[in-house]
Amino acid sequence: MEDAYIVVIQGKPQGPFSLTEMKSMNLTEDTFVKKGGMSDYKEAHEIPELCELLGFQLTKAEAQYFASPDVRLLAALIDYGIILTFYLVIVLTVVSFVETQYLKVAITLSFLPVIPFAKFLMNVFMEASNRRGTFGKSLLGIKVIREDAGKISLSQSFLRNVYKLLSTLSLGIGYIAGFFNRKQQCWHDRLAKTLVVKDRLL
């Protein structure tokens, strides 16, 4: 039953209960509940339909589980691996039609700058999509969101990835700063007002 909820009562999950049943259960705003399709429990006041049913004031959940810079680096390496694989397939296909060894090397090396550009475009468009992250981030279960937990816009995603130049040109200090920030925000996150969170309550 997709409209039914599991309810934590006296520390134990019970149910499922229908909305009609829940209305007579004297639930409080901080009662933990879980509905089909939810990855984790939420408090009742964080769910719009329960607020409407039970008269609670809707409160947006704040992100609590942040992705550390080393996990984000691993996600970036996965993305580069995916891009490099496609790059090699395309380049090897092209150079197979070239006979001169010199031209083969020249073609292979001349298109290397495409890789970071492709990574930039991947970041901008995928982080602003409903996916909220690149392939690497999705594989590791992390997402990019606004500081208020909403989806970032395309312009915000673009600026965030431009600001990464500061984190990079600082010899990595901008990334290392994330280890010393309570919300694991690197310089580009703080400038763009974004968070990278573990995909648990979103």
Rank of each mutant, 00 (worst) to 15 (best):
I142T: 06
K143G: 04
K143V: 07
K143I: 13
K143S: 07
K143C: 03
V144C: 00
V144S: 00
V144Y: 00
R146H: 13
R146E: 14
R146P: 00
R146Y: 10
R146M: 12
R146N: 15
E147Y: 02
E147A: 14
E147M: 12
E147P: 05
E147W: 08
E147Q: 14
D148C: 10
D148S: 09
D148R: 05
A149F: 13
A149H: 13
A149T: 15
A149R: 11
A149Q: 12
G150M: 08
G150R: 13
K151Q: 14
K151T: 11
K151L: 11
I152L: 05
I152C: 04
I152H: 01
S153H: 07
S153Q: 08
S153G: 15
S153P: 07
S153Y: 03
L154S: 06
L154V: 13
L154A: 10
S155Q: 11
S155W: 07
S155Y: 04
S155M: 10
Q156G: 12
Q156M: 12
S157K: 00
S157Q: 04
F158C: 06
F158V: 09
F158K: 10
F158N: 04
F158H: 08
L159D: 01
L159W: 05
L159S: 04
R160G: 00
R160F: 00
R160V: 01
R160P: 00
R160A: 02
R160C: 01
N161S: 03
N161A: 02
N161Q: 05
N161D: 06
N161V: 04
V162A: 07
V162C: 06
V162N: 00
K164Q: 13
K164R: 15
K164W: 11
L165F: 14
L165R: 03
L165S: 10
L166R: 07
L166Y: 11
L166I: 15
L166E: 10
S167N: 09
S167K: 00
S167F: 02
S167T: 11
T168D: 14
T168P: 03
L169V: 11
L169P: 01
L169R: 05
L169C: 11
L169G: 03
L169W: 08
L169Y: 12
L169Q: 03
S170G: 07
S170A: 10
S170H: 07
S170W: 09
S170C: 08
L171Q: 08
L171M: 12
L171E: 05
L171P: 04
L171F: 15
L171A: 15
G172S: 03
I173V: 15
I173N: 03
G174K: 06
G174R: 07
G174M: 06
G174V: 10
Y175Q: 05
Y175P: 07
Y175V: 07
I176D: 03
I176V: 13
A177G: 03
A177T: 14
A177E: 01
A177V: 15
A177F: 12
G178D: 09
G178S: 10
G178V: 06
G178A: 13
G178N: 10
G178Y: 06
F179I: 10
F179C: 06
F180D: 03
F180G: 06
F180R: 09
F180S: 11
N181G: 07
N181Y: 06
R182A: 15
R182T: 15
R182F: 08
R182L: 12
R182I: 13
R182D: 15
K183C: 08
K183A: 08
K183I: 11
K183V: 12
Q184V: 11
Q184E: 14
Q184T: 14
